[in-house]
């Protein structure tokens, strides 16, 4: 990977691919899901070639999303384990929201907001997948009773709305904290970015002379 000199690697190529695959699937699911969710948005089904295609393709993309999100879980679950630091961070949320990093506690690789997004999605995506399976008429219509499907369909809708709102927050956060977009597209951040937003993470990298994305990963810090 050719990252510019002196930068810190925030996300490896594999992570980025995985992330953007998940993101792509998620967007398509949002569009096709909302088409079937509300009459006002049914016109979105034209993006997939009409109602039948929308209904047909939505579950398949759901499967891809589920698999690819598992990839993200595998990569990030350890760094997303909650700790006391997160509680303290949250207590200072009012400072964070106005870009005042002064007495905000130092954050390791992911701050509490990001952990909320991660665990939120880690809960919602599987639930969406399994509730989605039960109402996947073509293949699984017969395996569960209609009463169950009514409940799972409601859960599916609620979780979808939750996921969409969580997703909107995640996207805005990336835009709000400038440099984050590049972190997930190019994969690197400036040391200053790391210092400002993920100081503990920077410290551990420096201690292990690692350039990221995780301590002890590759030992060419500073090249």
């Amino acid at each position: 990977m050719t990252y510019p000199k002196g930068t810190i690697v925030r996300a490896s190529a594999l992570t980025r691919i995985n992330h953007w695959l998940t993101a792509g699937c998620f967007v398509l699911l949002v569009l096709s899901g909302l088409a079937m969710f509300h009459p006002l948005l049914f016109w979105l089904s034209n993006l997939f070639g009409g109602g039948q295609w929308t209904r047909a393709v939505h579950p398949w993309i759901g499967c891809v999303l589920f698999v690819s999100y598992l990839g993200l879980i595998i990569q990030f679950w350890r760094d997303n384990l909650p700790g006391m630091g997160d509680v303290r961070w949250l207590a200072k949320i009012n400072r964070v929201i106005v870009n005042d990093e002064e007495d905000v506690p130092e954050v390791s690789r992911f701050n509490a907001g990001q952990k909320l997004v991660f665990w939120g999605m880690a809960f919602l995506v599987p639930v969406l997948f399994f509730t989605g399976l039960t109402v996947w008429e073509v293949y699984f219509g017969a395996y569960t009773s209609i009463e169950t499907q009514r409940v799972t369909l409601l859960i599916h809708s609620l979780c979808a709305i939750g996921a969409i709102i969580l997703w909107m927050i995640h996207v805005y956060a990336a835009i709000w904290v400038s440099g984050s977009m590049r972190a997930m597209t190019q994969g690197y951040v400036t040391p200053g970015w790391a210092w400002r937003h993920h100081r503990l993470w920077l410290r551990r990298l420096v201690e292990t002379n690692s350039r990221g994305p995780t301590p002890g990963a590759n030992h060419d810090l500073g090249r």
């Binding site: 948005l41 016109w43 979105l44 034209n46 009409g50």
Partner: peptide, 11 residues
């Protein structure tokens, strides 16, 4: 209408 206009939001 369905193909052209629809995409532009006239659902």
């Amino acid at each position: 209408a369905a193909s052209g206009m629809g995409a532009l939001g006239f659902g």
